[in-house]
Amino acid sequence: MPRYEYRCRSCGDTFELSRPMAESGDPAVCPVGHEDTVKLLSAVAVGGAASSAPASGGGGCCGGGCCG
C-alpha cells in the first residue's frame, strides 16, 4: 500500500499515512489530532534497467547532426 506524506497546518508536524491510492486525497488527521492538513508532493526515483542506460547524444535536430 502506498505511503503519502502530509503536513499539519496547525502545528507544522509532517507525518506519513499508508492508504489506498483512491484515498490519497481524502482528509488526514495529524497525530496530535488537528484536521487542517495538506498532502505533500513527493519526488520518487524509480530504478530499473532503463534508468541505468547511458544517455545518448543523438536524436533531435540539435543532437542528431541535422542542423547546418
Rank of each mutant, 00 (worst) to 15 (best):
E23C: 10
T14Y: 01
S24Q: 08
D13F: 10
F15K: 01
P27A: 11
G25M: 05
P54T: 04
S51G: 05
A45Y: 13
F15W: 07
A22N: 06
P20N: 04
C67G: 00
A50N: 09
C8M: 08
T37M: 04
D36L: 04
G33S: 06
C30S: 03
C11H: 04
E35D: 14
E35I: 14
V32W: 05
G33Y: 08
A49I: 12
V46I: 10
A45S: 12
V38I: 15
M1W: 09
V38E: 15
G68E: 00
A28R: 01
C62K: 04
A45I: 13
C62Q: 03
G48W: 12
R19V: 15
A49R: 13
Y6R: 06
A28G: 03
C62A: 06
D36F: 03
E35F: 08
V32K: 12
F15L: 02
G12Y: 02
L17H: 14
V32F: 09
G12W: 01
S52Y: 08
P20L: 07
S52T: 13
V44A: 14
V29F: 09
S51D: 07
Y6G: 00
G63V: 02
G58S: 07
A55E: 13
M21S: 09
R3A: 13
C66P: 00
A45R: 13
A53G: 05
T37D: 02
C66S: 03
E5S: 13
S52P: 00
M21I: 09
M1L: 13
F15A: 02
E23G: 04
E16I: 11
F15I: 02
L17C: 11
T37K: 04
V46A: 02
V38Q: 14
S18I: 12
Y4Q: 04
G59C: 10
C61W: 00
T37A: 05
G58I: 03
F15E: 05
D26I: 11
G60K: 01
C8I: 10
E5I: 11
S51Q: 10
P31E: 10
A53P: 00
A45N: 09
R19W: 06
A22K: 08
R9N: 15
L17F: 11
S42K: 15
A43P: 00
G58F: 07
P27T: 09
A53R: 14
E16T: 15
P27W: 10
A49H: 11
R3E: 13
D26N: 15
S24D: 01
P31F: 13
G58H: 06
C30R: 02
A43C: 09
S10T: 15
A49P: 11
Y4G: 02
G65W: 03
E35T: 15
G65Y: 03
